[in-house]
Nucleic acid binder design. Structure first.
Lengths: 188, 188
DNA sequence: CGTACCATGTAAGTGGTTACATGATTCG
DNA sequence: CGAATCATGTAACCACTTACATGGTACG
């Protein structure tokens, strides 16, 4: 049940509305946690009821009004408690791996197109992450770290490096998969 | 909803009981899909009702009788249909990444122990995969591939290589995370 | 004689997905 | 005037988790 905590972290990084959170979950936070707006609104309502977050009605011009949420003391405490409680490394679920093993009982070559699609998606994600890294961390326009290190910045960067490493690894593996599928197709 | 298909693949590789499937999901199939016995029994019942799988009562001595399931024609067809239908690369959920970003609002150094625990778990998984690879694929005792390549074997191996690559990448990243956390702790 | 393993289930709860619903504003 | 974006929700359903339940055999 880390959606609560993912939302708390995001609101600590910057307060915002349910709609804005949903957009963030399509991007930066979405790199390691996904959520739809329906889910987010439900959780926000619950956390508001529990006093974890505060709401502020923000009138806007040219746009619908919005409710801006920010983390209350109780929410900070709940997040801190969760941070200190150990969690098990999560279990993995890879549809593609199921498909690959299933292909042994069907036509392996028919999977090639599917794997190529995956390869493209992961290639795009990698490019996206790398662009973000240059923009926010390593590029010339990026804010310079002067004086003591900014913990939030460093931690965001190391998470992003994880995403980059994951995509690179995945691309290399998908190439391995493609080579294997092609080898099996050629040998028939 | 790939649990159905993961079970079908596993039953195609070798027919078995719900209990046996549950054990497999703790090992080989569990590398890329998890399921508890409660889930498995429910899905087996449903697939049996749909005519996807056949049951055979197998009396045993010294053990309780078991129901051995095997894939029926309709199940094979359902699997084939799924294999040919495109699926989106699945979304990721990493509690640890949420925790790392959350640590910026708490004590980063307190996360070190948690990350070390993760590191150990992933190290064990890697060792487990590598042992399996030697045993089943690359070792001297492993069945030799003579003549035409065995598609099932090759495909199982490439999936396992994916698991190995994933664990290696994760270990390297966790070292990066640890170094970052320690740097932040030392700079305070 | 207790623990571990084999074997199969039910029930309740939670988290997540999909579909439906509304309504205003901006831009081409 | 249609599509996209901003903004917030309800309802139904499905997948998954956790807790509870039973009962036999093997082994040290």
């Amino acid at each position: 049940m880390a959606l609560d905590h993912a939302i708390l972290v995001s609101l600590l990084e910057r307060p915002g509305s349910g709609y804005e959170l949903a957009r963030r979950f399509e991007r930066s936070i979405g790199y390691f946690w996904t959520a739809t707006h329906q889910q987010i609104y439900r959780v926000l309502k619950r956390m508001e009821g529990d006093g974890w977050i505060d709401v502020r009605e923000v009138p806007q011009q040219g746009r619908p009004d919005k409710k801006e949420y920010s983390v209350a003391a109780a929410g900070r405490a709940a997040l801190s408690a969760w941070l200190h409680e150990p969690i098990e490394p999560e279990s993995v679920r890879h549809d593609l791996a199921v498909k690959i093993r299933g292909a042994a009982f069907d036509d392996p070559a028919a999977l090639i197109r599917e794997v190529e699609r995956y390869r493209q998606v992961h290639g795009e994600r990698l490019a996206h992450y790398l662009a973000g890294e240059v923009r926010d961390f390593t590029g010339p326009g990026a804010p310079q770290a002067s004086g003591p290190p900014d913990a939030g910045r460093e931690l965001q960067h190391v998470v992003l490096r994880g995403g980059i490493a994951y995509e690179r690894m995945t691309l290399a593996w998908l190439d391995d998969v493609l080579a294997t599928l092609r080898r099996l197709g050629a040998a028939r």
